[in-house]
């Protein structure tokens, strides 16, 4: 009960929430079954392909893996700067 009151006033995260967050993060990578270096390589090549066609804002781009209901999705947010090069 003391714990309960203490928690009420403290902002400390409960350990179970940490467990959940850590698991969710690690499982995204476990589920794609792709070693980190290949994931990085894939991102770079993906960016390379897009850059052949248009200019992109490399500062703002964001490519990541998301997972919900056991489906893993590659999510890419790549802001384009505009006109085609050629």
């Amino acid at each position: 009960m003391i714990d309960f009151i203490a928690r009420f006033f403290k902002k400390d995260k409960q350990s179970k929430d940490l467990a959940k967050e850590r698991l969710q993060l690690v499982l995204i990578h476990d589920r794609i079954n792709l070693p980190p270096y290949l994931l990085e390589q894939m991102k770079e090549e993906l960016i390379g392909v897009i850059k052949r066609f248009t200019e992109i804002d490399e500062e703002a781009l964001d490519i990541g893996i998301e997972s919900s209901d056991r489906t893993v999705t590659l999510v890419a947010n790549i802001p384009l700067k505009g006109e085609k090069k050629v």
Partner: peptide
């Protein structure tokens, strides 16, 4: 322990595993 928030509860585990 679940009540104290020091052990993942059933919903936490189901959320994670998705089954």
């Amino acid at each position: 322990m679940v009540e104290r928030g020091e052990m993942m509860n059933v919903k936490d585990i189901l959320d994670i595993l998705g089954i």
